[in-house]
Simulated assay, not measured.
Amino acid sequence: MAGGGHPDWTDQELDRIVADYFSMLGEEISGTTYNKAAHNRALRDDLDRSKSSVEFKHRNISAVLVKLGLPSIRGYFPAENYQATIVAAIDRYLSQNPTALHPEKVVDGWAERQGLFVGAPPPRLPVSPHNANIERLIRKFNPVERDFRNRKLGRDGEELVFHHERQRLTQLERPDLAKKIRWISEELGDGAGYDILSFDAQGRERLLEVKTTVGADVTPFYITRNELSLASERPEAFRLCRVFDFSAHPRMFELTPPLENLVHLSPLNYEASFS
């Protein structure tokens, strides 16, 4: 029995509410109007659960999706104290519906879009306590690897920042500098340690490395040795632009070197050689 004498959620009930959550999430990402209250009522009728119980379970799902680097429904703020059973239900859903791991929508016309909200980065918090169930799920549906391998997502994020920089300099009455911005990774490929060459209002270089995710602002990301070296060599110019919530409401923050003061850096790869 769950707290308060209410029966624990069964696997069937959890599968039902997880599927309903992803249905609403898909509608939100596509821009389709939907009614959360109507979904809540339908679940209450089907499952004989209270309004608050259904809503809290939706918030549990949001918390797990944040860990997986996936978008979550606005208004269902993550509730961290979820049980292993909801983690298992989300595992079942994603295993049966792998397209849910790639909720990117086709977006064109970045040049015509006005404004990209640029806010403060999330705080660097202590490393989270060990949770075997969620860590197992993260390894299975690795959000860092998924974003890293999604070249279209990465390119779209770079394009968004490229046009944002042009708009920013134009608004600062520096159209001359806006015309000089270069999309380095598009022109020359990866390897420079940054993606976009931009400028500040005084004409000083801004070397922008763009990292994009469909997940929340706290979603981890890969950073290469080359990028870290450039951040160390050119701290006055290097900026890491983190674009997040890309599918639904793209926003961005910038990280300024030294990066190790702002994020936890964990070595993940080893080079194997014979000499």
Rank of each mutant, 00 (worst) to 15 (best):
G4H: 15
G5Q: 06
P7N: 07
D8M: 15
W9F: 13
T10K: 10
I17W: 01
I17E: 07
Y21Q: 09
Y21P: 05
E28S: 13
I29V: 14
T33P: 00
N35V: 03
N35D: 15
A37R: 13
A37F: 06
N40G: 02
D45M: 10
D48R: 13
S50W: 01
K51Q: 14
S52L: 07
S53F: 00
K57S: 04
H58Y: 13
H58A: 10
A63P: 08
L68T: 02
G69R: 07
G69K: 05
G69Y: 05
S72V: 04
G75S: 02
F77L: 14
P78K: 08
A79H: 13
E80G: 12
T85N: 14
V87Y: 03
D91A: 09
R92S: 11
L94T: 04
S95I: 04
Q96G: 09
N97E: 11
N97L: 05
L101R: 08
D108V: 12
G109I: 04
A111L: 10
Q114H: 12
G115V: 12
F117Q: 15
V118I: 11
G119S: 10
P123L: 11
R124S: 09
R124E: 11
S128G: 07
N133G: 08
I134D: 03
R136E: 13
L137D: 09
L137M: 08
L137V: 08
R139H: 12
R139A: 15
F141H: 11
N142Y: 05
N142M: 05
V144Y: 04
E145Y: 10
E145D: 10
R149C: 07
L153N: 05
G154K: 06
R155K: 10
E159F: 02
H164G: 00
H164L: 06
Q167Y: 04
R168Q: 07
L169D: 02
L169R: 03
L169I: 00
L172V: 01
E173W: 09
R174E: 05
A178M: 02
K179H: 08
I181P: 05
R182F: 01
W183A: 03
E187Y: 00
G189C: 01
A192H: 09
G193T: 02
Y194T: 00
D195G: 01
I196L: 06
L197G: 03
Q202S: 15
R206V: 00
E209D: 14
K211W: 10
V214A: 09
A216G: 14
V218R: 11
N226I: 04
L230V: 07
L230E: 03
L230R: 03
L230A: 03
R234E: 09
P235K: 06
E236G: 07
R239Y: 08
R239G: 04
L240N: 03
L240H: 05
R242P: 02
V243E: 07
D245G: 13
F246N: 02
S247C: 14
H249L: 13
P250H: 09
P250S: 05
P250E: 09
E254N: 09
P257L: 06
P258Q: 02
P258E: 10
E260G: 04
N261R: 14
L262I: 06
V263T: 09
L265Q: 03
N269T: 14
Y270C: 12
A272W: 14
